[in-house]
Simulated assay, not measured.
Amino acid sequence: MDKVNAAADRLDSALSRLEGALESLFERAGDPGVVRRELEAMVADRARLADELDASLARERQLQALADEASEALGAAIEEVRAALNREGSS
């Protein structure tokens, strides 16, 4: 009977240590439901930010193409003005 009581005491002690360790773990990790919701929110934010980045990059490409067109048009206009000035100066 003493062996059974000693084993029961060791089991009780082990269970108490386990409960303490679990409580400590849950305190550090937080509520699993809260952690799961935070993770889901972070994943959703990442997806939204990735979409916004893709849209921004596409807009940047469009703006760069427009800037290139404007630069070419401006260069052509400058050349036309120079040519006109040279014609006027030659006459």
Rank of each mutant, 00 (worst) to 15 (best):
D2P: 03
D2Y: 04
V4Y: 03
V4S: 04
V4Q: 06
N5T: 15
A7G: 08
A8R: 14
R10P: 05
R10L: 13
R10T: 10
A14F: 06
L15H: 12
R17G: 03
L18F: 07
L18V: 07
L18T: 14
E19G: 05
G20N: 13
L22H: 15
L22E: 14
S24M: 04
L25P: 01
L25S: 12
D31P: 00
G33A: 09
G33W: 10
V35E: 03
R37W: 05
R37G: 02
E38F: 02
L39H: 06
E40F: 04
E40Y: 01
A44I: 12
A44T: 15
D45T: 10
R46E: 12
A47T: 11
A47E: 11
A47L: 06
R48Q: 14
R48N: 14
R48F: 09
L49R: 14
L53C: 02
D54T: 15
A55M: 02
A55I: 09
S56Q: 08
L57S: 08
L57A: 09
A58G: 10
A58P: 01
A58F: 10
R59D: 07
E60F: 10
L63E: 06
L63G: 00
Q64F: 07
L66K: 15
A67F: 10
E69Y: 12
S71Y: 03
S71R: 06
G75N: 10
G75P: 00
A76K: 14
I78P: 00
I78S: 05
E79F: 03
E80S: 03
E80Y: 01
E80V: 10
R82S: 12
A84G: 02
A84N: 04
L85E: 08
E88L: 02
G89E: 09
G89H: 05
S90N: 11
S91V: 15
S91Y: 15
